[in-house]
């Protein structure tokens, strides 16, 4: 599953990346495999999105979110 398929309020675990260039940037920002993320909100026009990772909010474009592969976790 891709991060772009997640709905606001849902959490997931980062598995892998499908874009080599982007992946380094994500890794450096703390989005490492095994890390839990929460989709906080989607911008009013449908793009970009904001996620909570590693204790802070990170925003990224929908197209960038497509390159993050995740597995969903149960909603707490």
């Amino acid at each position: 599953m891709k991060l772009s398929e997640l709905k606001p309020g849902q959490t997931a675990i980062i598995k892998d990346f499908s874009d080599d260039d982007l992946s380094l940037r994500f890794l450096e920002m703390g989005c490492v495999p095994g890390e839990e993320i929460l989709l906080e909100r989607i911008a009013p026009l449908g793009d970009p999105i904001a996620i909570r990772v590693s204790g802070y909010s990170l925003c990224l474009r929908f197209s960038e979110a497509e390159s993050i592969l995740i597995s969903t976790t149960e909603n707490k």
Binding site: L22, R25, M29, P48, Y56, S57, L58, C59, L60, E64
Partner: peptide
């Protein structure tokens, strides 16, 4: 062009 940025508190 990246848009990967922090939304600060």
């Amino acid at each position: 062009s990246f848009f990967i940025m922090e939304l600060p508190v």
